[in-house]
Nucleic acid binder design. Structure first.
Lengths: 196, 196
DNA sequence: GCCTGACATGACACTTAGTGTCAAGCAGTG
DNA sequence: CACTGCTTGACACTAAGTGTCATGTCAGGC
């Protein structure tokens, strides 16, 4: 990695660190971008060169998940049932959060507790859903234009994802995410695995 | 209704009419609030007395749906299976849109095609989901804190709702919403009606 | 070692969304 | 007529986000 690239990473990390610390502490609406950039020691203009919006600093923390999930689903063996493949797919993302509870829990709680952030988060999820649906259609040789199953199955999996995240967040990380994921998929599996 | 109340309705309607016409025609980001209020003949300050944000003018068009859905679910006979009750619940809202295709279709297409509007719309749906989950829990005598079913079932129903709306919108109102709703619920019913 | 091009930054001005405040207009009431 | 409550417009203000330009800094070629 070149020096310039390392410098960019450094600035982005410092900006994200300062932002998350302030936002989690004082609440999303009570912190201005000017405060964040003052804490990070850069100009406001630079902030918006790294993040498209104030929401983005928080949301980008979970940004990779979308591509991660699709890749994970694509990597599952073809013989696996949809419910099993999707359960593992969702679990990888949940685990990425729950595995770093100390850092991730406050962020998740901030997102779920802030309407503006929740809105952006759900918008991202909608994109993930389309990605997952496309992957599912490929996997099962279905026409995503004619068949409703891919979109619905992806939607159900993400509903499970959201519900687990919400429970985990509401319990302050107390509840076991693995168990929650399994319980959620037990509920939706009959629809995922029903013969079309 | 008193004169003052009728005047308020008049202003709100004119504002919404002017806004939707401009937004649908030129796109959400290409229209400023100043343009809207100029077209409606009121001050910018008045606009924000009627709508909390620019997004709200569009979203409020679908605002009632939330309460409508919960009321509709509460009104379904207790003996009905969850999938049947939820299918009717969702259908009432879909029909409220599809029944006024001329007015509703452009609005739905605007929402689904504008990230900022989609985000707000999904945020609303999240609230509906909690409402529906609470109603489902009551209906089935479940503890919504312990059991994942109510949230998941409500989420699946709203996934179906969103998928149907998306298909209907993408087909320019061509596809039959009733048939789409039935097909969607055929897919998710096995999970909704599985014994807990 | 010097020049040069690519790139990151800060400063500044600008647009737009959204809010607080206040004085003026207008209906209904005694 | 005087009083009260509600709606409105005008104005000033904060904060998010963008365009532009001059400056600085690192890389590789001469």
């Amino acid at each position: 990695m070149t020096l310039a690239e390392r410098k960019r990473r450094l600035v982005a990390d410092e900006l994200a660190r300062a932002a998350l610390q302030l936002l989690a502490q004082k609440g999303f609406d009570a912190v201005t971008v000017d405060e964040i950039v003052a804490a990070a020691g850069v100009s406001k203009r630079t902030f918006f060169r790294y993040f498209a919006s104030k929401e983005d600093v928080v949301i980008q923390f979970l940004a990779d998940m979308g591509t991660t999930m699709r890749a994970e689903l694509a990597a599952r063996p073809a013989a696996e049932s949809p419910s099993t493949a999707l359960r593992h797919t969702v679990w990888v993302s949940i685990d990425a959060c729950a595995g770093h509870t100390r850092q991730a829990l406050p962020v998740v709680q901030l997102i779920l507790g802030t309407p503006a952030l929740l809105a952006r988060f759900l918008e991202r999820q909608a994109q993930w859903r389309d990605d997952l649906a496309a992957e599912l259609a490929t996997r099962l040789n279905l026409d995503p234009r004619a068949d409703l199953y891919p979109h619905l199955a992806a939607g159900m999996a993400l509903t499970a994802f959201g519900t687990v995240l919400q429970r985990w967040s509401a319990s302050n990380g107390t509840e076991d995410p693995k168990a929650l994921t399994d319980r959620a998929f037990t509920v939706i599996a009959p629809a995922l695995d029903a013969v079309g």
